[in-house]
Design a protein around this nucleic acid. Structure first.
Length: 281
DNA sequence: CCTTGACCTGCCCCC
DNA sequence: CAGATCAGGTCAAGG
């Protein structure tokens, strides 16, 4: 297990993986499912009503992973620029709903939608000196009405969230099972849900189901591939990826970046968004 | 198999 | 300051 102080909290929170976090003074306060977490860099302190080691993937052999993904200069530079950046292992239901809401939306907007859901459907919980709303439980969201969801400013995603919650509530989607399945099977299962396409499925798989070969390709990732890797992934352009092209590209990506491709994606994504001065939480 | 247009919202910009 | 523009994935209809 790596040294505890090698985690950069701000970099990790501000890397597009999580949304329900706020910086209050020197502390980052966030929601993961029914848990509240309080993280502070200086002096270093990690508190959670749940399992913080699980959340921060402290079981990963980071030294080995970073060595494994350091296949080229671009990734090596990205790792150097964002040292201390970690993948997070999120509550699967929250992750699933979060990225369904992410479609055609910006980070700030996703955050606002999720905060609205928590305020309306979550339960108040106290931790440390803070009191905040946890993420809605599956059955609560499954029983929500369309109007309530629309009140949370979900727009056309409201029916996606409703159906997706019903699928989990009826065990049509079982995260414990998906976690055990291989990448391809898990992705195929997720994509049966309305509102989940390739990119969203990859995010859920990577950030909550331990599929480290998942490599979500959004507009930014696509630009990265075009900018730094056009000789390696020849058929990538700025045009939106079709279903087949996405799948083919993902195969090539795993061949090139390896079984921890998801980690390389996270470093590359963080680097390029920072380079373009895109805002985070 | 691919292309196209619709879908909500919030933010930024410009008149 | 109201109104237009744009960014961002997925889906359904049609070529």
């Amino acid at each position: 297990m790596q040294k505890t102080d090698s985690i950069n909290i701000e970099t990790t929170i501000n890397s597009g993986q999580v949304f329900l976090w706020n910086k209050i003074g020197e502390q980052w306060v966030g929601i993961d499912g029914q848990d509240i977490m309080i993280l502070r860099q200086k002096p270093y302190s990690l508190k959670s009503s749940g399992n913080i080691d699980n959340f921060l993937r402290r079981d990963d052999n980071l030294e080995k992973i970073l060595k494994n993904i350091s296949t080229d200069r671009t990734v090596r530079d990205a790792i150097k620029q964002s040292s201390g950046l970690r993948l997070i292992r999120q509550d699967p239901f929250q992750c699933y709903i979060s990225f369904i809401c992410s479609s055609n939306s910006s980070i700030q907007n996703i955050k606002s939608m999720l905060e609205n859901l928590c305020r309306k459907f979550g339960v108040k919980k106290e931790f440390g000196k803070y009191q905040l709303h946890t993420f809605p439980r599956v059955e609560t969201l499954a029983n929500a009405t369309m109007n309530e969801l629309l009140d949370c400013r979900l727009g056309f995603r409201a029916k996606y969230v409703k159906e997706a919650s019903l699928a989990v509530n009826s065990n049509k989607i079982d995260f414990k099972e998906l976690r055990k399945l291989d990448y391809q099977t898990a992705i195929r299962s997720l994509k049966n849900i309305l509102g989940i396409g390739n990119k969203v499925a990859d995010c859920i798989a990577l950030f909550s189901l331990d599929k480290l070969e998942a490599f979500p390709i959004d507009r930014w990732t696509q630009r990265i591939l075009l900018k730094y890797y056009k000789d390696i992934f020849c058929d990538v352009s700025e045009k939106p990826l079709t279903e087949k092209k996405y799948e083919k590209l993902h195969d090539d990506i795993v061949k090139y970046f390896g079984p921890y491709a998801g980690y390389s994606q996270q470093f590359l994504f963080k680097m390029e968004r920072d380079l373009n001065k895109k805002s985070w939480l």
